[in-house]
Write a protein that binds this DNA or RNA. Structure first.
Lengths: 208, 208
DNA sequence: CGTATGCTCAAACGATCGTTTGATTCCAGT
DNA sequence: ACTGGAATCAAACGATCGTTTGAGCATACG
């Protein structure tokens, strides 16, 4: 299905990669294990053998990328916070850039779309899984935002971070109307995306 | 399934109402016609009789609410634009408030979640349907934003409107962490949501 | 060499999906 | 009162779903 499969990778990895692509394209319900295993070039029964069930596969698809993303975001935040003067833009960059980079070198540009779908699906168990594997990162960033925006009440801050998250998810998952023009390289386009996001989000957070 | 069915309504209307709720809750693929018709209290075959197919039903669920939403947004925009001095906040209110109101008196607070799901699903035919039934409203608002933000290039403006849309969709569909507190009335909470959205979006749009 | 162990495979399981059928009920028009 | 089209109904259609099974294959250890 247009998704190249690295035949040297392990069966588990090939399933995860194919699943990520297919979940992004057709959703968790819409992607069947038969399509998925065919794209991965593995036997149908391999999913249940290696992951136990389709639901557990979904969780592992998230876990693989979220572990990467969380680590990079926290590393970036730590480096930013250690500077003598930290700006709001710095913190936003620490939050945004790893996500955009994941699209690039993680091979999982599709993961952000999968993540966006997970937000859209109000499935409780999936939300709990995301909260368990994502919450501590959000809390650290929230603390840093609170330090840089002392004039905001806690409730106001939560609201704005929520709205920033919406804008980021929307942009990063390629929902929107903005498409990369053919005369702009992938790298350049991503850099422009980061800049637009940071400028917009910083202004929104600083709103009087 | 907890969704009260007005037994005096027509079969078509009852299907549409039950479908909206179930699509919001379980997604387009996840909601089956059997669950749907059971919730609506109608026969399974009624969907294909009245709508032709499940896909056409999905479209009609959108069309019923979008027609309302579009009409209210355009009316609000027209009224705002006729004033001698139009502010960015006014235009944003014309865009946001009808959507929030729809949650209230349209009985379709769930519709925004359905709409958010539609954004998440990258289904081409559904996106085309949305573009056909939604595009002209976005164009009118974009023109008004362009008038009020002449310093922005066309590309920059598109970017920011896209990010605003992301924030709005996120907030309106109840994705986020913000939940209504029990000591705040539904009406008050909605009003607060509008205010937060407008303040954040206006600042983002005005970003230097 | 024999035999465990980890993995892959084709095939089948029961369940559920969207859709269709054909008979039956309802009700307005003459 | 009769008739014809619209609406509803139970039942079944073939397709596809996630999952399970048991045989077959490989590699490593005694």
């Amino acid at each position: 299905m247009g998704v190249p499969v690295n035949s040297s990778a392990s069966t588990k990895e090939r399933i995860l990669t194919a699943a990520e692509a297919l979940f992004a394209q057709r959703g968790f319900e819409g992607a069947s294990l038969r399509q998925l295993t065919a794209a991965a070039g593995v036997n149908l029964a391999a999913v249940n053998y290696h992951f136990g069930s389709k639901d557990h596969l979904v969780e592992q698809v998230f876990k693989r990328r979220l572990d990467q993303l969380n680590a990079r975001r926290l590393a970036a935040l730590k480096q930013v916070a250690s500077q003598s003067e930290t700006t709001l833009e710095d913190v936003l960059a620490a939050f945004i850039r790893p996500a955009l980079d994941l699209s690039h070198d993680g091979g999982g540009g599709l993961f952000m779309r999968v993540l966006a779908r997970a937000f859209a699906e109000h499935d409780d168990s999936l939300r709990k899984f995301l909260s368990d594997n994502y919450g501590h990162v959000m809390r650290q960033f929230t603390a840093e935002f609170a330090r840089l925006l002392p004039q905001l009440s806690k409730e106001e801050l939560y609201w704005r971070i929520d709205l920033v998250t919406g804008a980021l998810t929307h942009a990063m998952s390629g929902f929107g109307i903005i498409q990369r023009k053919s005369d702009v390289s992938e790298v350049t386009h991503r850099e422009q995306t980061v800049e637009h996001l940071i400028r917009f989000a910083a202004a929104g957070l600083r709103a009087p």
